[in-house]
Design a binder for these strands. Structure first.
Lengths: 242, 242
DNA sequence: GAGTGGTCTAGACCACGAG
DNA sequence: TCGTGGTCTAGACCACTCA
């Protein structure tokens, strides 16, 4: 499909990738140190690091500073289902994905005021949700809700739980999807290379009165997540578009 | 928002970015050569190239081998509107974005058979659509249609036109969105750095009989395109999900 | 403190683009 | 041909992890 890549490090990456797929390097294994690998392949360290960077970008290798390069446990691809979600279903339909939610109060500023259509400095509640698959971080969501719509009894701080069912009846969900590289702090909290593309979903949910009840910023690493949007076209809907 | 980045090349990138936004470097300008810039900032060439790589990833700079680094003309962000489209509207709602369509015949293989739900080697028509904004390539779409659904009079070869209205009544449009880095040939045809994330949309459209009438693979560079999906939640729809 | 990755250097050599 | 970017080297120095 793609023509043969001519660079040294592509060849090295191919070799390592092959060793992983064949099983000579198993999930969880530590690779030899970069200096060892470099001398083994007769290249300099920067060249070897390029090869590793490629594998990182593919999600096959996880680099841990001071400790080594490790073969990643294969990550199941999870699918984010668009179109909002009903009361009990979490945004990511995944069973063994447990989520750590950190709730905190803040005031609207900058981008958020426009998203939520509120005035600056109006009180909000932020839910910072980091979901894990096993021990490795999987995805990051930041959900903002006007304070008066958040459950009053919810304490600030860390809660290990599913996001509570705080969904009022929704009328309209608009999701803006874009692809970009992670910000430095996303890269570190998700423990991904900064060269891995992430799928960035901004979801704005509006209730029947037209009020924005939620804005969510989701960061889904591209090597482990897709999003699916399904649209049913009825004849009435087609007419309405015209 | 993001804490100050400590590396040398981040600082250099910040400086250059600033010069661009301030207007000291204007769109179309050629930057000084990498060696000149390197000596100006008192860093080595690889370090400087990191800085440029970052700007490339942001779509601010275009590198042309053998000729130099250029400040990109600012690209308007275009939005892909999800949910399929009605007869006359192109997938990208953009006026001055003109599209070159290359039609060709081929037979289903691999991935495509599953997407279109057809048997292997069944005849298909491929529309390879490359849209340009001015002189620079903007996005790439590959659309596959079962041969018998394509207009019979359509010749193979290059057509500079909008995609013809060949939409049968659609019942269901499913769009799978993912983020990844471009394949080498995507990077070259779109003239983007291979470090720029692209938004990859796989759209499968089904007609009222359940037959797949179209599969489209869209590659939208992350620095210039978003996708928007809107879902109207009626009470019936919510009931249906349960 | 030993070993790991992270960053950076100074310079070599090759490949491409334009005159 | 000349100037440009593309790749690579050999090695220095710093920062982090873990025993």
């Amino acid at each position: 499909m793609t023509q043969p890549a001519p660079t040294r490090w592509h060849a090295i990456a191919d070799d390592l990738r092959n060793q992983i797929s064949v099983g000579r390097l198993k999930a969880g294994d530590r690779l030899p140190s970069e200096t060892q690998l470099a001398s083994h392949y007769r290249v300099s360290t920067p060249t070897l690091r390029n090869a590793l960077a490629l594998l990182q970008g593919e999600g096959l290798v996880e680099k841990i500073h001071g400790s080594g390069n490790f073969v990643r446990h294969p990550l199941r691809r999870t699918t984010y289902v668009g179109g909002g979600y009903t009361s009990s279903a979490p945004p990511l339909v995944e069973e063994d994905l447990h989520t750590t939610v950190h709730a905190s109060n803040l005031r609207a500023h900058g981008h958020l005021t426009a998203l939520l259509n509120v005035s600056p400095r109006s009180p909000l509640m932020e839910f910072r949700c980091l979901s894990h698959q096993g021990k490795t971080p999987h995805s990051l969501a930041r959900i903002y809700v006007p304070r008066d719509l958040a459950p009053a009894d919810l304490p600030e701080g860390l809660l290990v739980a599913r996001l509570p069912d705080l969904r009022p009846p929704l009328a309209l969900v608009q999701e803006t999807v874009s692809a970009r590289l992670p910000t430095p702090d996303e890269a570190t909290t998700l423990r991904i290379s900064s060269a891995l593309a992430i799928l960035c979903i901004t979801r704005v949910a509006t209730d029947t009165t037209g009020r924005v009840v939620e804005a969510a910023l989701l960061a889904l690493p591209g090597d482990r997540a897709d999003a699916v949007f399904t649209t049913h076209h009825t004849t009435e809907a087609r007419k309405a578009e015209a």
